[in-house]
Amino acid sequence: MNKNSPLALLFNIVFLTFMLAPLVIICLVAFTSNGYISLPTNGFSLRWFRAIFEDSQFVDAFYLSIKLGVVSATIAILIAVPAALAFARYDFKGRSVFMALFLSPMMVPHIVLGVAFLSFLTTIGWYGTFIGIVLSHVIIVMPYALRLVLSSVVGLDQRAEKAAVSLGASNWVVFRHVTLPMILPGVVGGWVLSFITSFDEVTMSVFVASPSTTTLPVKMYAHITETIDPLIASLSALMIFITMAVMFLLDRFYGLDKILVGKGK
């Protein structure tokens, strides 16, 4: 049953067009056979997709971004799970202060974090190292990881854990075999959102990335400010395709809205 008026449906169509237009245009331009930005008027060509893989800088940046996303999301989750358990289970002094602190990177503009990390990493001599950029990304993704894990821990029924304890299970066994399986959806969701956030981040990374630790978005940003060519369009199209694939998989197995509610504050 659709309760919307024709006018509302028209608005909806215009809105969706607006949302999809820039992505669609990229995907079209990516298939051009010309050497400049243009629609593929004389046939679809994969020439610019091949060009991506011949450019070692983009390939390196891509691998770095993947590695960065995986490592920082994993570290963030490993830290967020115990913290979320503490917040959900205990009423301790400083609880609300801790919570506010842990969520606060979301409120700090990324440009400020970039500035801060650049000074900090330079001072301690970690500028240009992988570990340096990983740590800065952990801070950025932590709030998202924490929020999603927290939401699954808060909804948890503690009786199963109590039952396990009464049957003589150790703390670790309870965590591993009872708690973790129950909070797994939140943990997976938190990890995915953290990975995506890290993989897409550009504003802060522009500061902390050095020539040897350039992430893909930073590399693309630098490229676009110099020139907008079909190569960058095909690379962007490739990223859109990958995102779409991931999105459909997530939606299939998990429910996209569950992950995306974590993105809005």
Binding site: P22, L23, I228, M239
Partner: peptide, 10 residues
């Protein structure tokens, strides 16, 4: 879920 850089390029 798509990087801001990509969307801006569009």
């Amino acid at each position: 879920l798509v990087s801001v850089v990509v969307r801006t390029l569009g």
